[in-house]
Design a protein around this nucleic acid. Structure first.
Lengths: 148, 148
DNA sequence: TTTACTGCAAAAGGTTTGCATGGGT
DNA sequence: ACCCATGCAAACCTTTTGCAGTAAA
């Protein structure tokens, strides 16, 4: 945890910006566990910890935390963006259940190669790739069959 | 074009719903070219053709057209969803420029296998996979370097 | 002392919904 | 005749922004 805070503090200083308790609170909440999150999650967890950072501040800081390479956007669902840690996690992709939202993460070695190849073929500098596979998990499939 | 209209008409009838001129106009505009689109595109193109279908109707019909298997969501960008044809296009993925939005489509044979394998490993019934690769195209890279 | 950061409230932009009217079947 | 579909406008939700006060450097 201290390492993430340190990284972000350096990043902020280096950009000539200011380290504030609100920024530290946000980082602490984000890296308090290893799960995917969204803005509302963060807001509620902050209030739980009696930190009353506003949503505006969360929204204003997320781009900085992304730029710092600590988190990234993963998917847009239910009308809002979802994020996950980049720091401390090797690059991975997601298999998601359409019904219950269950997420299975997986590392797919070949994908890096595929995107590099596509990058050079099309003269793109590749920044990111995102493979998002959706379907029905076994439990939801059972539910569906029962329902019919 | 007639085939898509026919498919959608049957789909609508089969569901006990009603075929209306508005629905036909929407299908015609969507399949008037082969490009990606968003709701605003459709709305403007409809008004250009002097069809005054409301946005509400577009929003209400898109889920049906998706359910019919003619289109699907591809990515969320600039605050709104973007769609593309499913009908008449083999499954493909996208390489997109972060700066100018240029899109290169590609068919990646191995991906189907990868997602099937992941599906059986995790006992998921796979419905879709979406590989979205982002980066900077050569033109935007040149612009960036000039700017520095 | 300077000026970035914060909270608040309002605004903005996409999408959904309630309602009365119109039109498929 | 039934009731689904439409247009309109309002509502809703997420995200952004203007502003005045606060605090990091």
């Amino acid at each position: 945890m201290d390492d993430v805070i340190g990284l972000f503090r350096s990043f902020i200083s280096q950009k000539g910006l200011r380290n504030t308790p609100e920024r530290e609170d946000i980082i602490k909440v984000i890296f308090g566990d290893h799960n995917h999150f969204d803005v509302d999650d963060l807001y509620l967890r902050l209030r739980h910890k009696n930190s009353k950072v506003s949503k505006a501040s969360i929204y204003r800081n997320i781009p900085l935390i992304m730029e710092c390479g600590l988190i990234k956007e993963v998917w847009h669902e239910d009308g809002h963006m979802h994020y996950e840690h980049t720091y401390g996690h090797r690059h991975h992709c997601h298999l998601r259940c359409i019904t219950c939202g269950k997420v299975v993460e997986f590392v797919e070695r070949d994908l890096g190669r595929i995107s590099e190849r596509l990058g050079s073929t099309n003269d793109f500098e590749i920044i990111n790739h995102r493979l998002d596979i959706t379907g029905y998990c076994s439990e939801c499939r059972n539910e569906k069959e029962k329902g019919q």
